[in-house]
Structure formats: C-alpha cells, structure tokens
Nucleic acid binder design. Structure first.
Lengths: 365, 365
DNA sequence: AAAAATACCGAAACCGGTTTCGGCAATATC
DNA sequence: GATATTGCCGAAACCGGTTTCGGTATTTTT
C-alpha cells in the first residue's frame, strides 16, 4: 500500500509552468504581488493537474492544520447522545465551508479528557477545541487556558473570563415552563435538577426560581427533587416527590430522560401523566415524540449549535477576542400532551395516592 | 492567539543533550542502531522537557498522518443514528490505543461522500477510510479503489474483491428469526426489507428466504412488503400486508424503526403486537426497550464494530493484504415481548380485520 | 531625462521532523 | 597483527510546502 499514486507536488506544477514554487504558492494563496494573468494560469494548471496541497506540508510552516478538535466523554450520562449526529453534522458542515475538518476523540472521564486535549494540541492534531457540556468548575477550561490553546464552550461556566461560548438559554426555558404551568392552574410545581456539577443544571435551577418569583410562588425546598439525568434516577426522584406530604401537581424536569423516568413513577402510582400530573421537560429527545402521552419539552437545535460553535472557534483561532465571540440562543417549546390544566389539588392527590398505595400494598408482591 | 507557547522542538532537545536531531529521532523511534543508554537518556530528557513531535512534521516525511477518516451521510435514514456515539467511541478507542486519531466529515449524499473522500485523502487529512453502510453497488468503493486509497467496509458489497471488511451476519439473524417464529407456530411469516440499494438489505432478504427453506415454508412474494427504513414507511408497508387477502401472523422487519411503524399499523387495526401478530426485528435501538410491548430484535454491538474496523483499517494501511482482513460477527437476539406463540390463523385474522375495519369506517373520520 | 516608486517574480531560507550515508572506534575473525 | 565486522552516532539531504528578501523591468514622479 505504499505507492498511494504519486501525487503532483507544487514542484511539478512549478516546473510545468516554468515558474518557481514560490510563485505557485503565492498565486494559489492570493498574494497581492502576483499578476492576475499568472494567477489564472497557475489556477488553471493546478486544477488541470488536480493539484491539492498536502495539509500537513502547509501546516509545518503556517502552524495551522485547519482542524478543530472535539473530545467526547462517552461514559457520562447519555442524555445528549441522540443529538450527536446532528451536532457533528453542524460542526463538520460549518467547518468544511471554510475548508476545515473535525478531529475527534473520546474520553472516559474529565481527567482523561484533559489528557487528550493536551495530547491532541501538543501533537497539533487540532488548532483549537470545542468543549461540550461545561461544568460549573471545569478542569478542561483551566488546562486549555493555561496552555493558551483556543477553545469555545458549548455552555457557560462559573469563571467565564477570557472564554468564548455558545449556549442555549435553558434558564429562560425554565422560567417559561413555570409560567405555562402557573397559567394552567398549577401552584405546586416541582423541579428535578439535572446532572450535578454541570453548569446547565445550575442555570436551569436558577430559572425555575426566577419563574416562581415571577408568578408569585414562594420557593420551597421540598419541591426540589434529587439530581436526575437518566430514566432510573428520574423515576426515583419523582417517586419521592409524589409520596411526600404535599405532592406536586406538576413537575419540571431538567432533562428529558428524567422526565421519562417520572412517567414511570406516575404511572406506577396509578396516575395519568398530563392529566393528574403535568410534566414539562427540556432537551427534545426523539423518544419524547413516541411515548404516551407525548412529552412537552423545550427542544434544542443541536445542529445549529454545532454550526455556531465552529464558526466562533475558527474566528477565535484566527485571533478575534474571546469576549466578542459569545452567543446565546433560545430553545423551542414543543407543546405536546404531557402537561395540561390542573385537575386536582395537591391534597386530593395525596389522598388518592394514599388509597392506591394501600391497595397496592395488599395486592403487590 | 499567535504565540501558542513556544514548544520544544527536536532541535532543542538535541542541543540540550549534545547530540544531533537524527540521534534523538532514532532514539525515540526505536531504531536498532541506538545504544540502550542514549535511548534512555533521550527518552528521559524528552519527557522532562515534555517534548512531543508535531504529527504533521512527521507526516511530511513519513507520508502518514496517523489518522483514519470517516465520512458520514447524515441526510439518509436515521436508523443507525442512535449508535453513532458507540460507533465513534469504538473507533476512537481502538485508534488511540495505537496513537491514531479520527477525522470525520459529513456528506449530504453519495456523490458528496465520494467528493469528500477524495478531498480528504488528497489533502492527506486521513490515511485511510472506514466506509459505513455499504451499498450493493458502492460508488465510494469504486473511487477509493481507483485511487488506491486504503479502506475497510462496515458491511459487505457486491464486488468484494480486494476489499477488507467487518460485518454482522444479518442474514443469519433472519434465518434465526424465521425458525423462532416457526417454532412458535407461525406459518405465514412476512418480511419487510430494509433500504433499497443497501447491501445489508439484500443479505437479510436472502436470510429470510433461507430460513423459510429450512423450516419448509414456500417463499411467497405476497408476504414481502415494501422497503421500509423509518417509522412511516414501516407503518404503510405493514398496513398493506395486514389488509391483504391472507394477512401474516408474524412480521420480520429488517430495521427496528420500521418495526415501530408496524406497531402503529397493527394497533390501528385494533390488534395487539406480540399476541395477534408477532414481530421480530433487527438493530437494537434504545426505543425498542421502552415501547410496549418491548421489541424482540437482534442487537448489534456497534462499539465493537468500530473497534474491529479501526484495527483492520490500520493493519490495511500498514500493508497487510485486504483478503486477510475480513471479519464476520453475530447479532445478539434480545428475547422480548413483541413475539410469541401464534394465537390466530391467517384466516381468522383476516375476518377480524374485516370486522374492525367496517367498524372503523363507520366511526372514523 | 533622471530619479523614485511600483509591479512582479526568482532565489533561497525555513518549518520540524525522518532517513540515508558514511565514518570512527571497538570488537570479532583469521 | 592485519582485516573484517559491528555498534553507534554525526552530517546532510530530504519531505512539500510557505515566506522573506532582493532584484529587474516597467511605470510614475519631478
């Protein structure tokens, strides 16, 4: 497999045209000191001989490989997995428009991610990185900042100084969710936070609080469930809320998968999602469309996120100031069947649950 | 962003050690003509000064960038999307074990894919490619073969000469499915083919035929539905089968998403999946676990596929013969709730459907 | 018409590695 | 003891581009 076909080099092209390599290079790179006629002549010959410069040969002098890096953490909870294809499509499309490519690696955890980021940038497999799923306190950011490696965050973080980022305003979505439920008559609205340590989780929790304040409901710790990022955790967290003294008539979930878990808890309690208890969630995973009732949720346009992140990163690498490269977008509410008017008060729910629970204790295992 | 921190070059290292660059290079690359003592001395100094060679600087002489390429087609049907994360994890893990990376791009269609494959290999962004989702007649293969670019197929193809590949034996799964259904009493077993033009589709269809032959059922065109690769197509194809003169008591689907569509058709006809009509499918998408009844299907270990493909490709690039680099694995049957003993004959089903259909015509829209 | 500026391109250095070639010293062979 | 071999490493070429520097011919300025 050694003779991958002898490619035409810049030397071949120069020899054919009777000029020097430097002329060819400058002609192809639009240097101002090349006449229009020779520029065209070179261009034509280049495409005729199907010449294309080796990216790594260019990189050795320019220092740029024209590749953006992405390190995915696969072991963590999988809420965003369904979006991966869209995310990659967004990134690669935006990248290829500027003739860049995407280099990806997968890590098992944060330390591994930091290690890979360092390695990839030291070997110069990428000129900069997109950091998905930011933490409140993000070691990856620290590492890249120290090494002066360009990066852009998908999400925000506690210490945002000198960072460029793109994010969806999950906090606004949560405010909206509270208001919608309030307008449907709900007064006891619970909240299931997302993954601990993640910045989005803090923001959505904040949004929940702001929403309550806006509609004039006092924040109540007992209505905030445990962190839940997958179905099992969602089920357990919702179960606890349901069997508290004053159960909620609506639950806002930070993550769709947790909402699907809440479905289980509610159904297992003999109640109906969307009738007895309303649910509004966030993410927009495809499963939300096929479950019954379909899940009311705030959907994220992940492909668009990928596109914007890529554009921001390339501009960052080209030297624009990090402070100028920040964008915030909104999630789209999918108005489906898992939420509706309040049908019962919290007290009625509690009694109903008591009855059903006793019934179950007699007949269950 | 220009001063990405002045890295230590091989020259720095050589100067520090009082040897030449060539000695350093050979020491780090385990050349036999370097004494053990200097090899260790160089190694130690290298890690002390945290020296890491620039991959593109190496590439210029070696001709290898140590990167494998993957061009994804995102516009096509999404059956394999959920697996993408696993697939990438498998590839990148196997790649990083050998100190390689993954470069990916996304294409809108086959022609675009061919264009990207050519471009990526001409710019030498990748040393070889993994081609996912092979077609019976695959233009990508043709192009890469002509250019003598190393590649490995995920799947097989009509003209398999000089190709190395990894695949799951979907045909064996289909044989197994037929036998399982036959043993449960089913005699009219329908089949929904997958995407037209894809090689897996032909193989699974072939397997269906072989299965029928094994249990002694004659192949019947009328039991083969239209190609279906998503929910909507699955619904329509199943609907047609159900309302034929002699409806099947079981349906084998080439693709899970089509099976979910068949669920809709069956339920809409007033029948119960797993009781009135059995379904066995193929893929193992996560939705299959949450639908009711849960989907009996043959699951593919996509992560493992990624690992194997990567290993094969790297060996191919290093010069091993394509014929030696071929592997076939088996899918795992997930024995769930969507199939069971035959409860009705085809005739009974037909009558039942007739009744319900009349009833619906009166009450529906 | 002489001087200065401009347009254009060649020569050569350079980027950071790898690899070939050759030389010297130490060891092995006869 | 002379020669051949081996072990080890330096010198320099090389990979395929980019970029700096400088020079010539032409045009503009005075």
């Amino acid at each position: 497999m050694k003779s991958i076909k002898s490619r035409t080099t810049i030397g071949d092209l120069a020899a054919f045209l009777g000029v020097t390599k430097s002329t060819v290079s400058r002609a192809l790179n639009d240097y101002p000191d090349i006449s229009e006629t020779t520029r065209l002549r070179v261009r034509k010959a280049a495409s005729a001989m199907s010449y294309r410069p080796l990216s790594h040969a260019q990189a050795i002098k320019t220092g740029r490989v024209r590749s953006i890096g992405l390190v995915l953490q696969v072991s963590e909870h999988d809420g965003h997995r369904p979006f991966l294809a869209d995310f990659l499509a967004g990134i690669t499309q935006a990248a290829s428009e500027q003739d860049w490519t995407l280099t990806i690696a997968t890590a098992a955890n944060v330390d591994d991610a930091v290690r890979l980021l360092n390695k990839l940038s030291e070997e110069r497999k990428a000129d900069g990185f997109i950091l998905p799923r930011t933490y409140v306190n993000d070691l990856r950011i620290k590492a890249l900042r120290e090494q002066l490696i360009p990066f852009v965050l998908y999400g925000r973080t506690a210490d945002i100084a000198e960072c460029s980022w793109f994010d969806i305003a999950g906090e606004d979505a949560m405010v909206d969710a509270v208001e919608r439920l309030y307008n449907l008559g709900h007064r006891r609205i619970a909240f299931l936070p997302g993954g601990e340590g993640y910045n989005y989780s803090v923001l959505r929790h904040e949004g929940y609080k702001v929403g309550l304040e806006k509609v004039g409901i006092e924040y109540d710790d007992r209505l905030v469930g445990n962190n839940a990022v997958n179905q099992e955790q969602g089920r357990r967290a919702a179960d606890l809320l349901l069997h508290s003294r004053v159960p909620p008539t609506a639950i806002i979930c930070s993550v769709d998968l947790a909402a699907l878990g809440a479905y289980e808890a509610i159904e297992h309690a003999g109640l109906a999602v969307g009738k007895d208890i309303s649910i509004i969630s966030y993410d927009g995973i495809p499963e939300g469309a096929i479950v019954t009732p379909s899940l009311s949720t705030f959907a994220v346009n992940t492909r668009h996120a990928g596109e914007r992140l890529t554009d921001l990163l390339i501009r960052r690498i080209r030297g624009e100031a990090a402070q100028e490269l920040r964008e915030l977008a909104q999630a789209d509410f999918l108005d489906r069947q898992s939420h509706g008017p309040r049908t019962r008060t919290s007290k009625e729910l509690a009694q109903l649950l008591e009855t059903k629970s006793n019934y179950r204790e007699e007949n269950d295992e």
